[in-house]
């Protein structure tokens, strides 16, 4: 169980893992996430599922090295097993035929966006996808996105690949060009904040998939609370997707930094041990 079947480096810091877990592979839906733990001293942390193969019984995860836990996960090799893996968690994305969908992904956020793009396409929508990253090395899953999108726009901050500029630039051009019925954004909180401000300006219904801090992922701890429309909601059981225009992204950004000191110290201890 939870054995790593395949491992691929998208870049130095971004790794794709195909993990054996037949039950989750069968039951997961686009938008769901899992909670993982690596090693008996490891912490629990969430990752949104980037794909699944119910026949092979595998799920795909894409992880970016950020701190101790992601480093420990990436240190696992093919044949190793992830100590604990539970899911699928969170409410799945609401998929329906609505017309034209604009999907925007930033950094590793492109990975969980992929199954959503696929599902919207299969539901009969026109899907336009904008994928963005700091530079060419960090652009991931472009070919897979092209397979399920009517059009893919690539944006890089430094212009090393695709068009130069932030994700919002690519999005706005499309919004001005044609009628968009719904937008979905997944990426760093700051990117989702500005993408959301943009679509609010054009009054396009927008869903954002939030990456809050979690411990259990089942509604128990409340670490993942977020203000949506002035009400406190739990990302794990009420989300992870919310009406982006109602999300208090500034509060979310502040809460994401809630353990930054402790995370930094833990990372220093981890690097010393290596």
């Amino acid at each position: 169980m939870n054995k790593i079947i395949e491992k691929e480096y998208f870049s130095d810091k971004v790794v794709k893992l195909v993990v054996e877990n037949p039950l989750i592979a069968k039951s997961r839906k686009p938008g769901n996430f899992v909670i993982l733990r690596v090693g008996e001293d490891g912490e629990r942390f969430p990752l949104t599922i980037a794909g699944a193969d119910p026949v092979k019984g595998t799920i795909t995860l894409v992880v970016q090295i950020m701190g101790v836990s992601s480093s420990k996960l990436v240190a696992l090799e093919v044949g190793d097993s992830i100590t604990d893996l539970v899911g699928p968690l969170g409410k799945p994305t609401h998929i329906s035929k609505i017309g034209t969908v604009l999907a925007a992904g930033g950094g590793v956020g492109v990975a969980p966006l992929l199954p959503i793009v696929e599902a919207f396409k299969q539901a009969g929508n026109r899907v336009i996808t904008v994928i963005a990253a700091r530079n060419q090395d960090l652009i991931i899953l472009e070919d897979e996105m092209r397979k399920w999108s009517d059009e893919v726009v690539v944006m890089t901050d430094d212009g090393s690949y695709g068009r130069k500029g932030l994700v919002t630039l690519g999005m706005e051009e499309i919004i001005q060009r044609e009628k968009i019925d719904e937008c979905i954004v997944i990426g760093p909180a700051i990117m989702m904040k500005f993408a959301s401000l943009l679509t609010k300006k054009y009054a396009i219904p927008t869903q954002a998939s939030l990456n809050s801090i979690m411990v259990d992922g089942t509604g128990m701890c409340g670490a993942c609370r977020v203000s949506v429309g002035g009400k406190t909601r739990f990302t794990c059981v009420d989300g992870p997707e919310f009406d982006a225009h109602q999300v208090d992204f500034d509060e979310m950004l502040m809460r994401l930094g809630g353990y930054s000191q402790e995370e930094k110290q833990a990372n220093e201890r981890y690097l010393l041990k290596l």
Partner: peptide
């Protein structure tokens, strides 16, 4: 499982947990 909060101003600040 679900912890209750009091729904008062500032309760989502860091350092306030269930």
């Amino acid at each position: 499982g679900l912890p209750r909060f009091m729904d008062i101003p500032g309760e989502n600040s860091n350092g306030i947990l269930s």
